[in-house]
Each structure stands twice: as C-alpha cells, then as structure tokens.
C-alpha cells in the first residue's frame, strides 16, 4: 500500500482558497492602521501595520499552498484509512474501517469550480475528511469504503454468530 497524492486541480483550489484568505488578511491591519491614524496621525506604526500584513499575505499565498499540496497524502488500506495533512504542524489521522458509520461526498461552491469533492468519514466518536479529491476519485473512494465497511460488518457479525 502506498500513500496517494492529490491532482493538480487540488493545488489550484488550494491557491484559490489561499488567495481568498490573503484578500481578507488586510482587513484587521487596515482597521488598526485607521485607529492609529485617527489618534496619532501618520506615524511609523500606521505605515508598518499594513505593510507587514501585505508581506505576510504574499508569503502565505506563495509558500503555503505548495507545501500544503506536497504534504497532503492519503492511504486507503483493507483495514484502515490514513490522512496526512498540514503545513508546518502535520496531523496524521488513522481510522479503522470497521469504526466507520457514515460516508458523505460533499461539494462546496469552490469545489464545484475546480471539479473536486470531499469525502467525509464519520465514526461513533468523530470524523475525518479526504479533501480536494477529483469527482470520479471521490465517488470511487466513497463506494470502496462503503463496500469495505459492509464487508467488515458482515465479518464481525459472522464472528459473533460463531461465538
């Protein structure tokens, strides 16, 4: 079993979401700059605050999506699924197949633009999500997981009956 990576569509969507976030970045610093301008006039801080936010926004847009794309990996094995994601702080989620209760395929407005979808997997305690999957891939994964879960339930039931 090998970890699978995402398609180029995923990278484009990651860039779009980063751009939206970057567009929202200057809102708070602009308000802060306005407050400084109002009370203290044109000071160094009034210029620095928006300037820093612009640099941070640029850094976020150019650096974060490629790292996020490179680090995003998933594995679907017979007995478990694994999702590894993150930018600087990386989380590796592991869900045993027989704990899965529900599988949802979700498409948001941005997902629709790039033809991708999310597959949300729910257990009795929490949930895990495969993000940025191509539509066909999402359907295949959902179907595969559904079959695997049904098989696991049948095996469990068989084992219980034998007991």
């Amino acid at each position: 079993m090998e970890y699978q990576s995402l398609s180029d569509k995923a990278l484009r969507l990651m860039k779009l979401t980063a751009l939206i976030k970057v567009a929202l970045f200057p809102i708070v610093p602009s308000i802060v700059a306005c407050i400084i301008l109002y009370f203290n006039g044109l000071t160094l801080w009034a210029l620095l605050v928006p300037a820093i936010s612009l640099v941070a926004g640029g850094f976020y847009f150019f650096v974060v999506p490629p790292i996020r794309f490179r680090r995003y990996k998933y594995l679907i094995a017979e007995d478990r699924i694994e999702i590894s994601e993150g930018i600087f702080w990386v989380s590796k989620t592991l869900v045993p197949i027989d704990r899965i209760h529900q599988i949802d395929v979700i498409k948001g407005p941005l997902d629709n633009i790039y033809g991708v979808a999310k597959v949300n997997v729910t257990t009795a305690g929490s949930s895990a999500t495969f993000r940025f999957l191509e539509l066909k891939k999402a359907d295949v994964i959902a179907l595969h997981l559904n079959n695997a879960v049904n098989l696991a339930i049948k095996q469990n039931k068989g084992a219980q009956d034998n007991v």
Partner: peptide
Amino acid sequence: VQNTVVKTNPITE
C-alpha cells in the same frame, strides 16, 4: 478507540 490523530511539527518531527 474510534480514531487516532498523531500531530507533529518541524521540531518534533
């Protein structure tokens, strides 16, 4: 245990 998440950062990794 329903699922596990292992979290790392550049230092701990």
